[in-house]
Design a binder for these strands. Sequence first.
DNA 1: GCTTGACCTTCCAGTGACTGGAAGCCTTAT
DNA 2: ATAAGGCTTCCAGTCACTGGAAGGTCAAGC
Lengths: 132, 132
Amino acid sequence: MNIGDVSERTGLPAKTIRYYEEIGLVRPARTANGYRAFRETDLHKLAFLGRARALGFPIEDCRTLLQLYEDETRTSAEVKEIAQHHLGEIDRKIADLQEMRGTLSTLVEACAGDHRPDCPILESLGETVEGR
Amino acid sequence: MNIGDVSERTGLPAKTIRYYEEIGLVRPARTANGYRAFRETDLHKLAFLGRARALGFPIEDCRTLLQLYEDETRTSAEVKEIAQHHLGEIDRKIADLQEMRGTLSTLVEACAGDHRPDCPILESLGETVEGR
DNA sequence: GCTTGACCTTCCAGTGACTGGAAGCCTTAT
DNA sequence: ATAAGGCTTCCAGTCACTGGAAGGTCAAGC
């Protein structure tokens, strides 16, 4: 199977698949003309990677997860730990964004959004801290 | 004022301040020995940038916001539009993360996390789509 | 047999917003 | 005189791709 078919079937851009090969996540065979020749196992791996990435796992986590997936002597504890750590990161990011959202939405609501220059958003950003 | 003092007073790393100069967000004077000489206005700008960045505005938005801040003929509508757009981005990111969080936390809860290899997380990632 | 178009290949550069580190100059205190 | 600490520039690396150029390959149609 050529890269175009794999791209279509996995939903990953061809560029991304080449990149994954470059960093050693997949090792497709090559045909005589130099084209990558993907087998079903490669396709399966790439689909796995696509789903792991869609859950936001960093590439190195994906690499580890893939190794664990293929390792029959793994323990689910190893997998769970990675996932829990990642869940923590997600929670941290959500909290950060919600904090930003809170501040920003208050400011946006307070801003008239008209032709005048007065703007609580800029006032807040330009605020001089009181006291020396 | 030298970069170290500015760093301390704005909370921005010196590296970041130099980077902001490089991309033209601030233009500190220089003393005879080549050191950056920051004035109060520079400090004020950098503090503004620090707060805008803390709200997650991309650098180019920060640049525009700073220009508007210094432009007496601005309208609050211009500012509000940038802020609203950014708020939309934040909401999108939160939604993405919450979606990931939902899937992932379900999987984590379903995973025993013990010494056995059976793992719903890996099973889900490796899932083969049914049908040909 | 030739052309056309759709594939495929590699390689290089750019993204965003820094961050780390090396090599070297300047200042201040001892 | 020297040592510590601060400052300078410049280059490379981060993360996970993405865009684009230049060129090879293949299948279909004439």
